[in-house]
Nucleic acid binder design. Structure first.
Lengths: 194, 194
DNA sequence: AAAGGCATGTAAGGTGTTACATGATTGT
DNA sequence: ACAATCATGTAACACCTTACATGCCTTT
């Protein structure tokens, strides 16, 4: 199993060919930074992805001591990405790996179809509500301090907010999709916003 | 610098003397589990805290191959905990270490005074709003995909929810404190809910 | 006396961080 | 020629996870 960082790299390379440096800057200058953006993590991760044949680096500036590589997804890489994006969602994902779910959502545009995206958001909303309810269970337990209960309430509020967000997001992607559908029914894959 | 896990242990031991096993179960059976609850993390961390003289383990069942230890804070440990709880809050804490802030709130009851607790919540609310606003800045940047923008919006919503929670929490702790104040002005330190 | 929960611990492995090292290219 | 930025990489270290090992104690 790959890490979140590796999948983030896979997803970003899928959007457009990119170099390690470019990826590093994306992490450093955007909220993607949550998934870590140090060269000591990114370059080794890219190496692993390349030896696993999920990405392939085309070497610019060859036969120097400091070659530059532009990475692209291989067919295998595209498949691995898609499998990760389509993974069934568990309550543990919501509880302990919520950022990875958000990452999946951010990277599934242009890879999964409208139906799968809507499914994802519905599941996400439901699972966030479910997890919020499970925290509520702890609230009633004896021996909880005031701050303990308040901290739990904060968690509940945050997950409820996530669930509401997902419901709004469904409407937003629907609106976008119907516009896209009436405008241009073809054109997919490998495109990038201008 | 100690890790979140170490401070969590410090805080929990401060609430009442506890054994490693007891601590492990607290992590396993409550939302504290976010801060990890495997024996491979907890026992070594306790050992480090003891060699740093922040906690002290009283050995029950001595002169066996499997001694049992009940840990208590030392004066140094109490001080280290207090310093961590009182640390000034940065926007980076909110952005990358929000769970640690929540942990601090949960563990400051009975250690910091009412004033410091209210200060913490006010700062937390302000910094969450500030960070939410800084994400909003990214929303306007060109080159953002639809999903990218929606994911950012999710982050904004979550941080706004945190900020609102903190405001409600201030009222809750105020109410509790005024009740406490009129009931029993003394009695602090080392107590535990029944 | 066997089972199951209490209780502590270690070994191997993976992944990340910080800090550093180094080379290439471009603009002044 | 120099500085800044582009660009890649490594070494040391810290910490956590999983899986396992082991022993004590209580109940049946």
């Amino acid at each position: 199993m790959l890490t979140s960082l590796s999948y983030a790299l896979l997803g970003l390379i899928g959007q457009a060919p990119r170099s390690g440096y470019e990826l590093m800057n994306l992490f450093r200058t955007t909220p993607l930074g949550r998934y870590s953006g140090s060269p000591g993590a990114i370059y080794p991760a890219l190496k692993v992805l390349e030896t696993s044949r999920l990405i392939h680096g085309v070497v610019k500036r060859p036969s120097t001591l400091r070659p530059k590589r532009m990475y692209r997804l291989t067919a295998q890489g595209r498949l691995a990405l898609r499998r990760w994006l389509q993974q069934p969602m568990t309550i543990d994902d919501a509880a302990f790996r919520e950022p990875e779910l958000t990452l999946r959502f951010a990277l599934m545009e242009g890879v999964l179809d409208d139906k799968a995206i809507e499914r994802f958001l519905k599941d996400f909303s439901a699972i966030c509500d479910e997890y919020a309810a499970s925290i509520e269970g702890h609230l009633k337990k004896p021996g909880m301090t005031l701050h303990g209960r308040l901290a739990l309430q904060g968690g509940i509020d945050a997950y409820r907010a996530r669930a509401e967000w997902a419901k709004r997001a469904i409407r937003r992607v629907r609106a976008e999709h119907s516009r896209d559908g009436s405008r241009s029914d073809k054109q997919r894959k490998g495109q990038r916003s201008p």
